[in-house]
């Protein structure tokens, strides 16, 4: 593998608008239930002051993808650029991957009885475009990045957020910039 593409999510900028989540659905006209990308609200009590803070997550295109490891029919492949591709034509809907992924991102499509997930818009990337979710992000909170040491050495880059599974399990290709809080004048 020559490089590892992934996402950088900035909770300081993210307002939880869910534009990325629905832009993903719009791009592929995904049915209602599988949510390839999903915006999560961080628990307000995890912060010194109550707040509405968010992060957005799709498939993390892990360096050590559990989905790929457990799939009995080799529906998963990992590209040279690190993107983990799921091929629904091979998928038998056994759901082993949905149980193995610590992030719950491969999801069953109940109508098709097969798994679906984010393929990092590889077709767009191959044409030099950004993924649909990144293109749609209005505050610029979601970026496509190369996951490497120089990124990890930058100040403020986090490998995980409170409440997420340990990144040691699969080495997810996602990095975070944590939320920042301003001053609040409150009435309680």
């Amino acid at each position: 593998m020559s490089k590892q593409l992934g996402f950088l999510h900035n909770s300081e900028k993210c307002v939880g608008c869910r534009g990325c989540e629905i832009a993903c659905k719009n791009e592929y006209q995904i049915e209602a239930t599988p949510q390839w990308r999903k915006v999560f609200q961080l628990h307000e009590d995890d912060f010194s002051l109550p707040t509405r803070m968010f992060f957005s997550m799709a498939c993390n295109h892990c360096a050590h993808p559990e989905c790929l490891r457990v799939c009995p029919v080799k529906a998963y492949t990992k590209r040279e650029d690190g993107i983990v591709i799921h091929d629904p034509n091979r998928c038998i809907g056994c759901r082993l991957c949905t149980m193995a992924c610590p992030y719950d991102r491969p999801q069953i499509n109940p109508a098709k009885k097969k798994v679906e997930k984010c393929n990092l818009c590889y077709q767009r990337i191959d044409q030099g475009e950004k993924p649909a979710c990144v293109t749609a992000c209005i505050p610029g909170a979601l970026e496509l990045v190369e996951i490497n040491d120089s990124l990890d050495q930058k100040t403020g880059i986090l490998k995980t957020l409170p409440g997420l599974p340990s990144p040691k399990i699969t080495s997810p290709s996602i990095r975070f910039i944590g939320p920042k809080q301003g001053k609040q004048i409150r009435r309680d």
């Binding site: 307002v15 939880g16 707040t51 509405r52 301003g182 609040q184 409150r186």
Partner: peptide, 13 residues
């Protein structure tokens, strides 16, 4: 304290 207010330098309730 809206999503917008959560991003402010100063939020006044």
């Amino acid at each position: 304290l809206t999503s917008t207010a959560s991003k402010a330098d100063l939020y006044i309730q």
